[in-house]
Nucleic acid binder design. Structure first.
Lengths: 112, 112
DNA sequence: GGTTGACATTCTGATATCGGCATGTATTCT
DNA sequence: AGAATACATGCCGATATCAGAATGTCAACC
């Protein structure tokens, strides 16, 4: 067995830097493939294929207008990642520092 | 050119589900390899190799005690992911809904 | 010193991936 | 209808990956 498919889930999909660049480029707006190609500096087939992966994991939605296809980011698709990362929040942020302070205080209480 | 190395960055490293499971298992504590193996149900070499990847991207730290190696998660390593995902926050949370409401209101003003 | 225990590393084989190039498919325009 | 535009797909080769099994390393214990 080899590595998991990039289309397996969102975590695999955003593993590729080009895909992240594409998402960054689209941002909160809506862009046609040609516009993305012009901005990110990848070839058109390359962009199309990455968009396909992003589509399959639900990270982008697409609507056709004439011969153009406009892509927009589906923010909700990123929530699983945010949720997962947040479970480790206590390991880095100030809330943890405060928790740490609290524990130190409790320890001092105990030592008295 | 093939896919990027899993050790290229944190985004690639967490692409693997087994690696995420291992991180979840360690949690906010500190576990020896054997304990991880017993919990996640993977083979020992499998776990060791995944831990190596996680070490190389800085997602876990390791300290030896006798013939045991205790691993702990380095939460700070996850910050780049959190930061990146947050840039799309406007696309899913209530703050965006409120912005959306505001836009609808403005639109209605205009229609009058 | 030899054995056991706890991990790490190496080698192998199968597989999905990514980029490049060429080609296919619609849709618009003349 | 034919040409051009905007994308999507298919085929290819090179490569890194992951699991499995065997082996290596090093500390602890008898």
């Amino acid at each position: 067995m080899a590595r998991n498919r990039t289309t397996a889930d969102v975590f695999n999909a955003i593993g590729d830097e080009h895909r992240r660049t594409i998402l960054d480029t689209i941002g909160t707006g809506e862009l046609a493939v040609g516009e993305i190609v012009a901005t990110v500096g990848l070839t058109q087939p390359q962009v199309s294929k990455h968009l396909k992966v992003l589509r399959e994991v639900g990270l982008v939605h697409c609507n056709r207008t004439g011969r153009h296809r406009h892509y927009r980011v589906n923010g909700a698709g990123l929530r699983p990642i945010e949720t997962w990362v947040r479970t480790f929040e206590a390991l880095w942020n100030e809330r943890y520092d405060r928790l740490d302070d609290l524990l130190v205080e409790l320890q001092q209480e105990e030592d008295r």
